[in-house]
Structures are given as C-alpha cells and as structure tokens.
Amino acid sequence: MTAAIEVRAVEKRFGNVGIIRDLNLCVVPGERHAIIGPNGAGKSTTFNLISGHIKPTSGEVRLNGDLISGLRPFEINRRGLSRSFQVTNVFARMTVWENVRCAVLWATGHRYAFWKNVDSLPEVRERTARILDDIHLTHRRDVPAGLLTYAEQRELEIGITIASGATVVMLDEPTAGMSHAETERAVSLIRRLTEGKTLVIVEHDMSVVFGLADRISVLVYGHIIASGTPEEIRRDPKVKEAYLGEEAH
C-alpha cells in the first residue's frame, strides 16, 4: 500500500544550523497520526516541509506516492493535502461565511473565475453551509473572523482546513490555548470531521494525543526517534528517556 505521506531522509538547514536531520516518517492512509516532541524539536518545521511552506535542503516528500517536495504550497494543496496553523491564520476582515467559502472555491472548480456570481453557486453554498454547521459557527456566519473569540477562531481554522475536502489533513496544535472544555469539544470535532481521512496532528496535550491517535511519532532535535501505536510509544524506553520522562503518568 502506498503511504499517504512518506518523508524520506529529509534534512533542513538554516545556514549552518540543522533543524531537521535525517527525518523519516510514514503515514498510512486513513490513520490518525500524531507527532509529539519537546518544544523546539521541529514539529512545526516538519509540517512546513510537508505542506510546501518551506523547501527541504535534501531528501524527498511523497504524497500518495507522488513526489511533492519542491512544489509550491498551492500545488500541494491541489493534490489533496490541507493544513492548519498553530497561530490562527484566517482572513480577518472577511466574515466567517466568506472565510469558509474561499476555501471551498478551488475544490469546486471555480478557481479564478471572474464571470460567475459567487453568491449563486449552489454547490459552493451548500458545502459552505455544511461546513459551518459542522464547526458550529452557523450562528456567527456574518461576523468578521477577526472579531471571533479565540476558540471560535480555532474552530474556523479547522473549518477552512477541511473545506477543500482534502484527503490528507494536517492540524498544527489545534487545541493550543484552549480550556479543558473547549479542548474536549475540539477533539470530538476533529474526530468527526476527519472520519475516513488521513490525519496528521501536532499536539502538546498528551490526553488528546493518546486519546485520538492510531499511531504516534516522537520527534526530538529534528529526528524521529520512535514511531508506533500509543501503547508501543508509552513503553518505548528511548521515548521515556528523551521526552515523556516523569510526565507519562
């Protein structure tokens, strides 16, 4: 079976500093894969390398078997990979409705069209409405995204990410800064919305990670030291030493 995402021997250097060294990662189609690791381990950089935000110094990244390293972010997105951001990254002056709709437009084939009225595209309207419903923001549809509460913005962030219908979804710390109740809500939202898709998630909250992930990869100093099921990771002595330490239980 071809991996949904395959990272092979990827290296990223900024000047002389190697942030990512010999990174190997394999994400199986349909699984929920969490990447964990201490601060500064290179988790966000890994996301950026896969999604095309930055280019690897060497090595290759494959999406469903196709080489994508070196492609631009929008080219990778068009191939069915979508990602969210750790820092909320929405269209602040546009309404919630328009935020999600923008993310629907390319996937529905309307692209750069300047001869169609955007308000009278039935499939776009339906899909946007459905996603707003999914992320529980229908009642906030006409509010500019910049005026939403923090938790709402995080939900919108997820909505924008899944709106294109991408089969591989990458979420970068979706619950960061959320209260306990908000986190629970967000996790069930993620679980529901990524049903049948491949999910890669970076997360600090261990209860979220162990509750959600089918498999976990542990990243330390730009290198994956272990990959496996939550149970294997929990038992792995290398992981215990390098990362989980006393925090595990």
Partner: peptide
C-alpha cells in the same frame, strides 16, 4: 487579508 493562507487553500 492573508496572502500566506491563500496558498494553503489552493490559490496562487
């Protein structure tokens, strides 16, 4: 509003 994010919803 956000040229960076636009790239991740399929647009150049």
């Amino acid at each position: 509003d956000n040229p960076e994010r636009v790239q991740f919803i399929g647009y150049d």
